[in-house]
């Protein structure tokens, strides 16, 4: 009998009064930094995996390498209405079941291609029952793009941003603007 089943038995025997320690069917530590969201450490980890599917590491860093999940949670926590926050967290909580029901495995057990397909499909689901999940995934995608592109890493090392954009030229030939391609 493994530890999880043993604990479950114990809980049943004692009328559910046993505090169940952290494991996948209990609530783990709620992160105090995002006070409006009640997001757990494992949910944040999952969010990180999703953002890393949206913008993966390659020749240059990906979303997870530069703490985009933290940016996503800050934006959801600070810049959204409570209704939208509820949609987001409901969607986040529903994501593991969506993965299991669709792919039959946990998210971290899927191949990159399977993860991408799952998320792309998830952003386009219809029907009321999928509303929160779709909202969560689209919001995560939007903030992943924003947090990644408007990061110190991208704006200093990859596509340097200047506060002084230079003199205006109102008729630049697009063919004169060819830049070396950046390989992600």
């Amino acid at each position: 009998m493994n530890r999880r089943i043993a604990l479950r038995h114990l809980a049943l025997i004692s009328g559910g009064l046993v505090m169940i320690p952290s494991c996948d069917f209990s609530s783990d530590d709620i992160l105090a930094a995002y006070e409006n969201l009640k997001v757990t450490a494992s949910q944040k980890k999952l969010l990180g995996e999703i953002s890393n599917t949206i913008i993966p590491a390659g020749e240059i860093k990906g979303a997870l390498d530069i703490e985009v999940p933290d940016f996503i949670l800050v934006m959801v926590n600070d810049c959204m209405t409570s209704e939208n926050q509820a949609q987001f967290t409901t969607g986040l909580a529903a994501f593991p079941d969506y993965v299991k029901n669709t792919a039959g495995k946990q998210y971290d057990k899927l191949s990159t291609k399977e993860k991408e397909e799952l998320i792309l499909a998830g952003t386009k689901l219809e029907g009321d029952e999928n509303k929160a999940l779709t909202y969560f995934l689209n919001t995560t995608k939007r903030f992943t793009i924003q947090g990644y592109m408007a990061s110190e890493y991208i704006q200093t090392e990859i596509m340097p941003y200047s506060l002084i954009p230079g003199e205006y030229n109102g008729a630049v030939l697009i063919t004169d603007l060819q830049k070396p391609r950046i390989n992600g």
Binding site: I54, G58, T112, E116, I158, I182
Partner: peptide, 14 residues
Amino acid sequence: TDAIGMDLKNNLLN
């Protein structure tokens, strides 16, 4: 920005 993954990343960077 329709894609995700490496395609999205390369679109964003170029």
